[in-house]
């Protein structure tokens, strides 16, 4: 129940600044529009209606979905922990009989809930997932869950640099660029040469590119299991590293000031 309450508070906080939420969505909408116009121009000048097996209309859907996923897979935990460490407010969290990362996960989930609802509705209403049998549906849900957990642990792991770095804001453009390029937010990674296809299994691509293809019904059963297995691998690696680095970080925490 304590984590459920954390989740509820995170959802409430997200809606507390309605203006900010609307502005944020408008900015994302503009980005999507720009990307769509750019890709439509590419289709027109290439004279082809198919690039790497993706048609122009599918590309637009791809860009919309991958940008919604970029909202779901945010880097917020990095800046939250950094702010807690710099202000010394992490002390307050440490004094509660609670697991910091579990609490952080439910906050992360609460903040992403409006976008998860959009993604869930898209899957339910337009995705062909439900026409591919219950094994595929269960596999899809597993991939979604594992990827969400994996990405949270990865971002949490990166957030631990806050114990040693005074400012982590330079990481924001780096992470945005990683999601844009490696996550497939700017273009589907499938247009890369065959020798570079292994990039589709990096953590950012699993969260962006692969989940978009899943919604579009473009992941085969074997690709689905490969993506899930890789996500589990990244998840375990991130979990082990998180435990080791947290132990070291917490000893270097000085609980700044009074």
């Amino acid at each position: 129940m304590k984590y459920w309450q954390t989740y509820q508070n995170a959802v409430t906080t997200t809606f507390a600044y309605r203006g900010n939420l609307v502005l944020h969505l408008l900015t994302v909408g503009l980005n999507i529009l720009m990307a769509c116009f750019m890709w439509l121009a590419v289709y027109r000048f290439s004279g082809s209606d198919n690039i790497a097996g993706i048609g122009a209309n599918q590309m637009i859907v791809y860009l919309i979905v991958v940008n919604v996923l970029a909202l779901i897979f945010s880097a917020n935990p990095i800046f939250t922990l950094s702010s807690l460490i710099r202000s010394g407010n992490l002390s307050v969290m440490l004094l509660r009989p609670i697991n910091y990362f579990r609490q952080s996960f439910w906050t992360y989930l609460g903040q992403a809930t409006p976008y998860l609802v959009v993604y869930g509705l898209a899957i339910g209403l337009v995705s062909p997932i439900f026409h591919q049998g219950w094994v595929y549906v269960l596999g899809s849900l597993l991939l979604l869950g594992v990827t969400y957990g994996m990405y949270f642990l990865l971002i949490s792991l990166i957030s631990l640099t806050s114990f040693w770095l005074i400012q982590v804001w330079p990481l924001r453009p780096v992470l945005s660029a990683l999601f844009l390029l490696l996550g497939g937010q700017a273009f589907p990674l499938q247009i890369l040469p065959h020798a570079w296809q292994w990039l589709t299994l990096n953590p950012f691509a699993l969260a962006g590119n692969q989940l978009t293809l899943l919604l579009l019904g473009k992941l085969s059963q074997s690709q689905l299991w490969l993506a899930t297995g890789t996500a589990v691998g990244w998840l375990l690696l991130a979990a082990v590293l998180l435990k080791i680095v947290w132990r070291r970080g917490i000893r270097s925490f000085e609980g700044v000031g009074g």
């Binding site: 459920w4 508070n9 010394g88 407010n89 509660r96 000031g257 009074g258």
Partner: peptide, 26 residues
């Protein structure tokens, strides 16, 4: 513990929400 310069309260929510969270935590 009350560290006056480190707040337990969620800035954007009423105090009751933080207190209900603490009720569940404890």
């Amino acid at each position: 513990v009350m560290l006056s310069q480190k707040s337990q309260l969620a800035w954007d929510l009423p105090p009751l929400d933080t207190l209900v969270l603490l009720r569940e935590i404890y």
